[in-house]
Design a binder for these strands. Structure first.
Lengths: 360, 360
DNA sequence: GGGCAGTGGTGAATCGATTCAACAACGGCT
DNA sequence: AGCCGTTGTTGAATCGATTCACCACTGCCC
């Protein structure tokens, strides 16, 4: 069944040349004479020779792979980021080793060991904790590291993140522009940095509009899911004065709010406007299409990988950069009073992202 | 910045032993005397030695990695499968190299080359086409291959798939049991195998209930997304007799049908019952929680990886297996007349899957 | 004819971990 | 003392691709 592997030596002998020449054909074809090159290529084809990367990399000192450590690829945020990373690694003909830390420092640490043993060219990571000895250690040994969805605290390394404060400003700025007077923010637990930033953005938008930030009705949710959104809506329903606009720290909360409000007979957006965050695929497919803040997730991954590759290949002239992307507000019916809660148009194809052929 | 790498030789000299002994400490600690082992371990710690996997694998002939080739990780189906694969690879301390073929044979082929060069222990793949020379070639050379979400045509290789015919039977069987007389199936393009199977299952359920399969009103959709679902619902609305139950080939279609029906004042499930397929996270979070057929996606990946690892490590006694998992029907309000379209209960945590801490 | 430049090709050394035949040291036993 | 078995350690050979100093050959010019 499994034949003995073909090495460069076998190719050399059947082509009647030395191993050095075969290597030259593979790596510097231009220095080899036409006729010789032909013979070698024929031998490679006939024998079905495939380069052994392990041997290559042993010599080179590092492999043609990069490590990607995320909290959980099942999280759509990281899924899209991973796609971006893979696309740009693919352009540089690098392989991506995928690691899920599951928010567990021990698991993260094990994966970092594994990646170091593999002598990866570099590591893209959303670290579980802010300070990380293992990571520092790796950097000191010369492994390029790029932080994903985290901002580097100093300028000794690259990082790629999204400006969540701005996202909050956009959302609340939009609601204020629609003429809303009584606004609420739903999000929590407040220990999550993203929740803090988005809330802070909301407050800044209030200030920017000359409003008292204290007027923003803040509801801290216990989690960032649909059930927590329903709870928050129940609490808002009894508030006085009842807010006419709600900004939620993510789309799941917003969908929960939408569900519970609808159940209570509150019309969206006529009685209450809702804005979510993340622009998940189903924001557009909700009962009332949801206005949301979109993060450039694919671009985030792509850029991070590009920075990493630059750092890994460059001649030492690499400048560390801390890239921060701006999110974008996508306005849909849930915050648009002119629509009277009716779909104004068929939404374009983006919502069909998950409908690729095979998931079916 | 970057120090010269530490090799096993350096460890040997600082510990005052031979390289063979260091290797023994690493791989067969029990044959080394206590005191010697101590000295070696101390040296390893002091020097910060990390094994070079390339060298290891050069000797071993293959690496501690497996390749995972999917159509698109951004597709939630494959995301969950990938998680399963990664979990079980992690148990065997193998790294996973992630490859998206994007349904493009050329890209798939490039990735297979890359994986072969990496001398992966095996490959898990959802092939773009049914017959594949590259893949056959790899198998002949002894690389274990396990087909994912595809059924092997012969018993010379392993495969792991889900029984979509059964899924269709479950869905329609359920609707018939609810007393529905006029049923419809929405799905397409019919060229997709999953659509065919699910439709066939629906027809079988009709037969099993003593009904004429010709009575199943079939609407072929142009795609498997929400917009196509809305179109299908528009077509169904004018049908005579109007179906009282609709089985959709996936959840996106079902959500589209739900949206359009609701917009037209059709009450779900009172006037029309809906069943989807895939049980995506948002099935439970829809305006009317959606009954759906759930596939064991994580288990699919896990099992596939286990089969692969078994084939790769076993002493030639490996028996190829074609595993087919049964899907499961998850009944929610959209097909349950007793609920009168009102949520009967808060749905459990599963719907919050995407609400992990960082996506926020 | 001798020197010189340029082209094409060679093959041994190298990367770092693993393996294994060989050996050293020691105690126990006759 | 001599032999044997056990335990612990050694070091050279090995995996396969790359690299580079060096050689062979051709053609050219003085």
């Amino acid at each position: 069944m499994s034949r003995p592997p073909v090495s460069i030596r076998d190719v050399a002998s059947t082509a009647g040349v030395s191993v050095g020449t075969v290597s030259n054909v593979l790596n510097r074809p231009d220095v080899v004479a036409q006729a010789t090159r032909r013979r070698v290529l024929d031998a490679i084809r006939d024998l079905g020779f495939v380069r052994n990367e392990s041997a290559r990399h042993l010599r080179a000192g590092h492999s043609r792979t990069v490590g990607l450590v995320v909290l959980d690829v099942a999280n759509p945020f990281f899924t899209d980021v991973a796609r971006g990373v893979e696309d740009s690694a693919n352009d540089a003909s690098l392989a991506v080793i995928l690691c899920n830390s599951d928010d567990d420092p021990a698991k993260e640490s094990r994966y970092l060991d594994l990646l170091e043993e593999q002598r990866v060219q570099g590591i893209l990571i959303t670290p579980v904790t802010t300070t990380n000895d293992r990571l520092e250690h790796l950097r000191k040994r010369g492994t390029p590291i790029v932080l994903l969805d985290r901002r580097a605290t100093d300028d000794t390394q690259c990082s790629v993140a999204v400006n969540d404060v701005l996202g909050g400003e956009l959302a609340v700025g939009h609601l204020l522009a629609q003429g809303h007077k009584h606004l609420a923010f739903v999000g929590g637990p407040i220990t999550i940095r993203q929740v803090q930033d988005r809330q802070q953005g909301a407050l800044q938008a209030m200030r920017a509009a000359g409003r008292d930030p204290g007027e923003l009705h803040i509801v801290e949710s216990s989690a960032l899911n649909v059930a927590a959104g329903r709870d928050a809506a129940a609490r808002l329903a009894g508030a006085m004065p009842r807010p006419t606009a709600v900004f939620c720290a993510n789309d799941l909360l917003a969908l929960g709010v939408l569900q519970e409000m609808t159940r209570r007979g509150v019309r969206i957006p006529h009685d209450v406007a809702i804005v979510g965050y993340d622009d998940i695929d189903f924001a557009a497919a909700a009962a009332v299409p949801l206005t949301s803040v979109r993060q450039p997730r694919h671009l985030l991954g792509r850029t991070a990988a590009e920075l990493l590759i630059e750092e890994a290949t460059e001649d030492g002239s690499h400048q560390h950069r801390q890239v921060v992307f701006d999110p974008e507000l996508v306005v849909r019916d849930s915050s648009d009073r002119t629509s009277r809660g009716r779909p104004r148009h068929r939404l374009p194809s983006r919502e069909g992202v998950t409908a690729t052929r095979d998931l079916a």
